[in-house]
Design a protein around this nucleic acid. Structure first.
Lengths: 215, 215
DNA sequence: ACAGCCATGTAAGTCGTTACATGATTGC
DNA sequence: GCAATCATGTAACGACTTACATGGCTGT
């Protein structure tokens, strides 16, 4: 049940429509809690029905409307309650490590592809997360600015500090995953020294057929 | 859809009943993919219906039966296919970090409780995971022994190596989480130096009422 | 005889995924 | 006029959670 709290947290910065919430979601809470926009709209309705948000119907052009949501007092209370809540640790659900435990049944190239993709994925994420840290520290994004504006100045440093702390956690995880994948690639070299199907990446090559015929 | 593959992987070591599968699940694949036994029984039936497992009805005492499942050829093929499969990276779903981004709205004690519980949880897991590594390396557990027995000797080192590698990944994650939580506790000290509600743990104390009345 | 283990589930509900569906508005 | 973006969803399905339900077997 964290989706609703992610939304409450997001909207606590400023009122939003479902559409803008979806945009901002991707670029903030979405880093720690993924959700597609198709999940957001119904959840916003539910939050409204539960009295945690109120909606403001705004005219848009001549024939269209949009609903702008904002936190109610109950919504803010629920958000604060949830933030302070101590809940059960997350369940382990780690496909990559589950699979890695059985890599003896895979070809060297399949293992290599997976570990490289794993490392590459986290390298990308790392870039994004590190960029986020800088944006937050410089208080440059509109949303952070809006959030800070709604809170007394002495709190600003702390608000920023906790957000940076959360992102540093993601960065730490990314680095760990990259290292782990690289260790795996090394292990692969050690276990299957003969099986080097690496290709020098110097232009397009036709391959995959030759091996079957040369054997 | 990893539950079925976790089960196939588990049962590839030796034939099992639902009950023994559940026991072994907790102590092996369950470390990377949690599932309660109530989820296992129906899934085993489905795997059987899909031809990936076959069941053997065995007599048990005089009035009871049990079903022992084992991999079919199709089951082994599916397991191998899945192990080699490259799939989309996992979705981020990290409640702790989501919450941490909003710790400015929580009391020092709530933050402290959460970070301590987080560190403590991973300290416990760490112990279990490190113990698993030793058990696997010494090839002491019955299940590992059985698995190795069914495979040619030259493969044994590699089978062990990948399992150890998978668990090392868990260990790395645990260490990272512990460090992150400890960094958070330090940050808390820095941000709220006045707010030390730490209590010397020398017996039960009545508290929590005074604050409301003294205010 | 009784406890603790072995053994197998069901049922109801929530949460999340994927794909699809629709239409207005704004800026060029 | 057209494309990109703004805006709001539905529908069907599959995965996971939590609690409950039942009964035989084995060793003391």
């Amino acid at each position: 049940m964290s989706l609703r709290h992610a939304l409450l947290a997001l909207i606590s910065a400023e009122p939003m429509t479902g559409y803008t919430a979806a945009k901002h979601f991707e670029a903030s809470v979405g880093f720690t809690w993924y959700a597609p926009s198709s999940q957001l709209y119904p959840e916003l309705r539910r939050l409204e029905a539960d009295g945690l948000l109120t909606a403001n119907e705004l005219q848009r052009g001549t024939n269209a409307k949009k609903r702008e949501y904002q936190l109610t007092a109950a919504g803010e209370a629920e958000l604060r309650r949830w933030i302070s809540e101590l809940d059960a640790p997350q369940r382990e659900r780690d496909v990559t490590r589950l699979r890695a435990g059985y890599f003896d049944m895979a070809s060297a190239s399949a293992i290599r592809d997976q570990l490289r993709a794993h490392a590459e994925h986290y390298r990308q994420e790392l870039v994004g997360w590190e960029a986020m840290i800088e944006h937050i520290e410089s208080r440059a994004t509109r949303l952070i600015a809006r959030r800070l504006a709604s809170r007394p100045a002495p709190e600003h440093d702390e608000i920023v500090a906790w957000k940076v702390y959360a992102y540093r956690g993601l960065v730490a995880r990314a680095r760990m995953e990259i290292e782990w994948a690289e260790d795996g690639l090394e292990l692969l070299e050690r276990l299957r020294p003969a099986d080097r199907d690496d290709l020098p990446s110097t232009g397009p090559l036709i391959d995959g057929v030759a091996t079957e015929q040369s054997a």
